[in-house]
Write a protein that binds this DNA or RNA. Structure first.
Length: 500
RNA sequence: GGGCCAUUAGCUCAGUCGGUAGAGCGGCUGACUCUUAAUCAGUAGGUCGUGGGUUCGAGUCCCGCAUGGCCCA
């Protein structure tokens, strides 16, 4: 790694001359987007705006040397701005300093006038320049960027530097949660936090991560959902609440799954699932139009429209139409035989898994945003029974592009019914279902104090962001996705590298 | 878990029939005051992922392992 040694000796030289290559601060006046917004329309090609001088800073992406002048592209989190460094503008000493000690990858701060080149590109004519931070590792190739997916995920910071779209995608991702908060706060919801470390895992059917609490010498779980604690807060009297946070499921890694991911869960007292459907439509419409300026988006070539109202289909009817089987009227035996005919098998022999598997066969037929409503009670252990049919629950999932984006129900607030549902889940656990829910007696006790009629909603934030940024894999929307650890030998090789 | 593919310079990639390694970018030296994949001249840079095997000889063929990707369950 020659380049690293060269840069290290540059740092040494600079310090000998009394110049600190890692600065403490810089007063940046505008970001690259603001500069474009301010001046793009005001300046003509070849024109200089002498009454304006201001500070800008960013990372040097390219340097085009022309002897006594140079063009430099400075990248910040909104884009790139070109700067023009000229000997006759910065003086001989500074120009020599620039040539000798400033390289691609470094952070540089400048003071300059906005102008437009002959070719019409908005540029800053540099008057003063400072090296803000020295980079001592080489950047990936400027034209092709960084393609190696292993490096892209393991060293995301390099990916972000090399591929301009990455930072844009992450900006959008974090804007999505900002707009969700904006929308909910405006409607009187309060953002709350519930424990990540839990004694009893609940609120979903999933395998947990287990950790250990030394002080009580007990195992604890990382939460697989925020549901049961949020409902306890509603029991306690908080009527409109939400939580945006990480949950953890010890399951596979795929294009749609990362072991830790982000969800929004919200609860609204006195609401039923119809109210929550309306809220969901409005929320998604709000976020989509905020991000894209329109409710219509394109995802992997597929046109999707988030304009309410979304299509509604009844879960059992949809299955009947597509597969010809009435899951409500079929016995366990008939469901099992049907799956067998389809070439499908389930590990756990139970109605819950039969229905779950049958639903899997048709889920990907739904493309445009669609509320699938009224799920069977067996597969909805936390949802309230439908008011005119106890075999069903008042539950919906929002399916988009064949994938579950949201899950919601009129919350089950009858403690006796909830107790029976938990008992059924415990039976599944005894059959070997590791993902079955656990009896949570404290939650039952909470319900016995009275949960008001309540509507609840959960949204997978990562999947929503995938849709809104046209990203095909979840790893590209999570800044630091799970990767396998490096081998001891590889780590060692890297360490030797550091010493060189 | 199964199948297929990939791993060569810091990065993006070539490498023919098995005969001791190539380009572009980046780096370094030099020229150049409106370029934008700047241009021009020169130059340095490699344990070919890893461990075995076949062979007189392996980046290339065979087997194992690691990591990644794609598809399937």
């Amino acid at each position: 790694m020659d380049l690293r040694k060269q840069r290290l000796s540059q740092i040494e030289e600079l310090r000998e001359k009394g110049y600190e290559p890692y600065k403490y601060r810089f007063s940046k006046d505008y970001n690259s987007q603001q500069i474009k917004d301010l001046f793009d329309d005001r300046i003509k090609a070849g024109q200089l705006l002498e009454e304006m001088v201001f500070n800008y800073a960013g990372r040097i992406m390219t340097i085009r040397m022309h002897g006594k002048s140079a063009f430099v592209d400075l990248k910040d989190d909104f884009g790139r701005i070109q700067a023009y460094v000229r000997l006759d503008q910065v003086g001989e000493d500074r120009y020599e300093f620039f040539k000798k000690y400033i390289d691609i990858g470094d952070w540089m701060g400048i003071k300059g006038y906005p102008f437009k080149t002959k070719t019409g590109e908005l540029t800053l004519l540099v008057q003063e320049l400072e090296l803000l931070s020295k980079a001592i590792r080489p950047l990936p190739e400027k034209w092709h960027g960084l393609k190696d997916k292993e490096i892209r995920y393991r060293q995301r910071y390099v990916d972000m530097i090399a591929n301009d779209n990455v930072i844009i995608t992450f900006r959008t991702r974090f804007l999505v949660t900002q707009y969700i908060r904006e929308f909910l706060n405006e409607r009187g919801f309060l953002e709350v936090e519930t424990p990540v470390l839990q004694m009893i895992m609940g609120g979903a059917n999933a395998k947990p991560f287990i950790t250990h609490l030394n002080v009580y010498d007990i195992d604890m779980y990382l939460r697989i959902a925020t549901e049961l604690h949020l409902k306890r807060l509603v029991v306690g009297g908080m009527e409109k609440i939400y939580e945006i946070g990480k949950i953890f499921r010890n399951e596979g890694v795929s294009n749609k799954h990362n072991p830790e991911f982000t969800t929004l869960e919200l609860y609204q007292a006195y609401a039923d699932y119809n109210d929550i459907m309306n809220l969901t439509e409005e929320l998604l419409y709000h976020v989509t139009t905020k991000i894209h300026g329109t409710s219509k988006i394109k995802y992997q070539g597929q046109e999707l429209d988030f304009k309410p109202p979304f299509r509604k289909v009844k879960m059992c009817e949809f299955i009947k139409e597509n597969l010809g089987i009435d899951i409500l009227e079929s016995s366990d035996e008939e469901l099992k035989n049907f799956l067998k005919e389809q070439g499908q098998f389930v590990e756990i022999e139970d109605r819950y898994h039969y229905i779950d598997k049958i639903w899997d066969l048709v889920e990907d037929k739904i493309i445009e945003p669609t509320f699938v409503i009224d799920y069977p009670t067996e597969i909805s252990p936390l949802a309230k029974r439908k008011r005119d049919d106890p075999r069903l629950t008042e539950r919906f999932e929002l399916i988009i592009n064949g994938t579950e984006l949201a899950n919601a129900f009129s919350e089950l607030n009858d403690p006796q019914d909830q107790f029976e549902r938990f008992k059924k889940q415990m039976q599944l656990k005894e059959l070997g279902d590791e993902e079955a829910q656990t009896m949570d007696l404290d939650f039952i006790r909470a319900l016995e104090y009275g949960l008001p009629p309540t509507g609840g909603l959960g949204i997978g934030i990562d999947r929503l962001c995938m849709l809104l940024t046209d990203t095909p894999t979840i790893r590209d929307i999570i800044p630091f996705p799970i990767v396998k650890p490096m081998s001891f030998e590889d780590e060692e090789a890297l360490l030797r590298d550091e010493e060189g």
